[in-house]
Amino acid sequence: GLENARRQYADADEMFVGFDGEEDLHARTADRDVIVATHFGTVALVRRLRERRDDFLPAYYVQDYEPFFFDPGASESREAIDSYRAIPDGLLFAKTGWLCDLIGRLHDVPVAKVEPSLDHQVFRAGSRRRKNRGRVRVVGMVRPRTGRRQPLATLRLLDRIQTELAPNVEVLAFGCRQRELRRFAPQRAGRVENLGVLTRAEVADVLGVADVFLDVSSYQAFGRTALEAMACGCAPIVPRVGGTSEYAVHGENAYVIDTTSEEAAFEAVSDLVADRERLHRLQAEAVLTAERFSVMRAAVSEYVTFAAEYAGRGRHVLTVPEDRRPAASSGRPA
């Protein structure tokens, strides 16, 4: 919600506007040309607004394939599946070709492709402030409540890396509080240094002094943290399944692996620890790759998508008056 956004974004009160229910949102968006849901749970709200007025473009920015989040028989899974067709004239769009293709193939609905964003004001390569005496610093995100991120496999792998590759490595984890980690994996929680739950700026600080970012998720619809790591000069190891191909090229700026195999992930890290020249080459290419992405590029791609959709429906081309605030979003920050 808005409080979480305030913790993550210094300008949250300029960027986000809270609302209190459907009536309040209806009033706040009365003069808006586009209203976008960013989570499957709020698509129904945009649909109800559409039923009340027909002079705006209803849209859904699909962040992930959300039916994967739940057991097949769960009510949330059904709601997520239904969200793709919930608004008959709605525009669906996503930031990766993988996600566009998956939804199009499984649900027979078109999904427009827009550009991913990257905030270079926060995530950027600067002076690499290393105090690890030449050791390769490997960082992984551990989120026990998100099974598709394979938190236990990540923790087990980090522990193995620091044990078998010592003294040439240092490992760090972040993404959850220590007490949550102790409940989740009591035998391993104390073996890997855990930095806890971090803000965006704190994540950037950690990535800025890391060498390798490890993501062994079962899949990534996009994998934003890996791209942010690249912008900070960190070589990522990412899953083969999903949308990481938007930025990751195996052996050039990243290692793209089969994350069902712990051995494949361990060998990828071992290879980079043993071959510092290759590691540095990947890091340099990672920074160059990240430069292709920006908040402005993403915003323009979304605007062009909205304008084209508007024009295709015979409406006026969108304009953005200087005194107009951003269109309201009925979901979570992208």
Rank of each mutant, 00 (worst) to 15 (best):
L49I: 01
P67T: 10
Y61Q: 09
F68Y: 15
A94S: 13
P58F: 06
D54S: 15
F56P: 00
A86R: 15
A59R: 08
V62G: 04
D55A: 08
L49F: 07
T42I: 04
A74I: 07
D64V: 05
V43R: 05
R48T: 15
I87P: 08
A94I: 00
S77T: 12
Q63V: 07
R78G: 11
G90P: 01
A86M: 15
F70N: 02
Y65M: 12
R52D: 13
L57W: 02
R52E: 14
D71E: 15
A59H: 03
R78V: 09
P58V: 09
Y84K: 05
V62F: 00
D54G: 14
R47L: 02
D89T: 10
F70V: 03
A44D: 12
V62S: 00
Y61K: 02
S75I: 03
D82P: 02
G90F: 01
P88F: 01
D82M: 11
V62K: 00
D89M: 04
E76I: 02
Q63A: 09
S75A: 15
V46T: 10
L49Y: 04
R48I: 06
R53W: 06
F68S: 10
E66D: 12
E76N: 12
V43D: 06
A44R: 13
D64C: 07
E79Q: 14
G73W: 14
A44K: 12
P88L: 06
R78N: 10
R48P: 01
Y61D: 08
G90N: 06
A86G: 05
Q63G: 05
A59N: 05
Y60W: 09
D89R: 01
Y65H: 13
E79M: 14
Y84R: 08
L91H: 03
F56H: 11
A44M: 08
S77Q: 12
R78H: 12
G41F: 12
Q63L: 14
F56E: 08
A94M: 05
A74L: 07
Y84H: 06
V46C: 02
F93A: 02
P72D: 12
E66T: 10
V62C: 10
S77L: 03
Y60F: 14
A80G: 06
I81L: 13
F69E: 05
G41C: 10
A74V: 11
P67A: 14
D55F: 02
L49P: 06
R53Y: 11
Y84F: 15
